[in-house]
Design a protein around this nucleic acid. Structure first.
Lengths: 121, 121
DNA sequence: CAGTATCCTATCGGATACTG
DNA sequence: CAGTATCCGATAGGATACTG
């Protein structure tokens, strides 16, 4: 077993690839897709319908990106009409849980943010 | 004490303001600023120096946005040259911890993502 | 030091149309 | 159904210069 040279990842460095990964999972659509797939496997059209305001272009692009990063598994059924299912990989489930915690916090504390905004309007 | 009408926040709805708040805290620069301020209070130039690649424009814009949402407190010292310190509010500390968990996960698991990418290149 | 103002470019992202 | 391709406008965001 080779001893790896261990470089420390650092999101504060613009060169570090960790920043790119962080951007993928926190992107507008990426975060929503990840959290949604935590519930269950979904088909392309189901995701499109559940995520208000997303376009097919952005959904496809987001899914491809998250698949390349190893967060999402894509399963194609060779049937007509086409059927494709998206699910989380173990790695994806792991990040998605972190993103989910953030999403739940925001929903739960929304009123506090709103009231602060109006106070200092 | 008035009984509030309680609307459920839902990030999947494009109309819900929770999506906007989520976007603020997960934005490229917003997420980095929040996590950094979890360490300690920082001045404008310190933040700029610690966050690789950020421009003054984006830093100022990000700080203003997070201040409006009630996550960041801005303290101005009436001295010359000017001195301004940024810190987290209790609300901000709360979100920042969620964002931090995500950031730490990404840094810790970066190699897995990289290796998956190269496998399916 | 801590910004603001202006300008300009690149990328984001929506609408529409088309394909296997 | 599950995309891809193209076009195009909106916005993110960098560089530079300037101010209190």
């Amino acid at each position: 077993m080779a001893k790896n040279k261990r470089l420390t990842a650092d999101v504060y460095s613009s060169k570090c690839p960790s920043r790119e990964v962080l951007n993928h999972v926190t992107s507008t659509w990426g975060s929503l897709v990840l959290v949604l797939l935590l519930e269950q496997t979904y088909r392309f059209s189901e995701l499109r319908n559940r995520i208000g305001g997303i376009s097919e272009k952005m959904l496809a692009q987001t899914l491809q990106l998250l698949e390349k990063d190893g967060f999402i598994a894509r399963k194609v059924y060779p049937v007509i009409p086409p059927k494709v299912e998206y699910s989380l990989t173990p790695l994806g489930k792991d990040v998605a849980e972190k993103v989910s915690a953030l999403k739940l916090w925001v929903e739960a504390n929304l009123t506090k943010v709103i009231s602060h905004r109006s106070k200092n309007a």
